[in-house]
């Protein structure tokens, strides 16, 4: 049995989660402060992938990054970058598609922390950065972990958007969800079941881990 679609899926999910953590954490922090109109607008844009059909998002990405025109052509000519039908394209699409899963929980968690926590840290002479690292971040560990696991799990299950921008190229863009669809198309239910079972098991384990972690996070009375 070909395990490449599974490895490719795991690689895509891991890279997407790491990149989204780097992008999403400062973005969520910035969004959690104040309610300016441009922030609300940006938050709405970030949330759109939650409700938009993945094929719509995939279609627009395909159009935007097509090497025949506009941005896609410019990227290819000047930077030799091609997102369509490539693994890079899958990563880009996954980042856009999964961004609400990373930013949403972190932003909500930061907003729920009382402002007096930051104020107390400032009154001790600590900078915004020190306050973020030593006070805010450690107190949103659980939502942070949840956001990362949800992003990872959501990327594992992507189908429409990766199919549109990546197609079905073995070892390049043929992730597990596409391999399942492909197998069913060819009436190969055994292979479809094999990939499905692996994806189901990984996702189940991830979700159970989140619940267990959140339940036992504060168990010891002393450190």
């Amino acid at each position: 049995m070909d395990l490449n679609p599974i490895w490719l899926t795991l690689r895509l999910a891991l890279i997407t989660t790491i990149l989204l953590f780097i992008i999403g954490l400062p973005l969520a922090w910035w969004l959690s402060k104040g309610r300016a109109f441009y922030k609300i607008l940006l938050e709405a844009i970030i949330t759109i992938p939650l409700v938009l059909p993945p094929s719509v998002l995939g279609f627009y990405l395909l159009v935007a990054f097509s090497p025949r025109q506009g941005l896609g052509k410019w990227l290819l000519e000047y930077f030799n970058l091609q997102f369509v039908f490539s693994f890079k394209g899958l990563v880009l699409a996954s980042i856009i598609y999964s961004i609400p899963f990373m930013v949403g929980p972190i932003k909500s968690a930061l907003q729920q922390l009382p402002s007096s926590l930051s104020d107390a840290s400032f009154s001790l002479g600590k900078s915004k950065w020190q306050t973020f690292i030593h006070v805010l971040l450690p107190n949103i560990k659980a939502p942070l972990f949840t956001a990362m696991v949800l992003t990872f799990a959501h990327t594992l299950g992507e189908f429409g958007v990766v199919l549109m921008i990546g197609g079905n190229i073995p070892n390049v863009t043929r992730v597990a969800s596409i391999a399942i669809y492909d197998s069913v198309e060819q009436m190969d239910y055994g292979t479809a079941n094999y990939y499905s079972l692996i994806l189901f098991s990984i996702t189940f384990l991830l979700v159970v881990t989140v619940f267990v972690y959140n339940k036992y996070q504060l168990k010891s009375p002393i450190l």
């Binding site: 007096s116 107390a120 009154s123 002479g125 900078s127 006070v135 107190n139």
Partner: peptide
Amino acid sequence: SPQKRLVGFVFQDYALFPN
């Protein structure tokens, strides 16, 4: 900034750091 004023502040809700 509060960092430069460096006043001691006892908050009504204590504002202790949970971590």
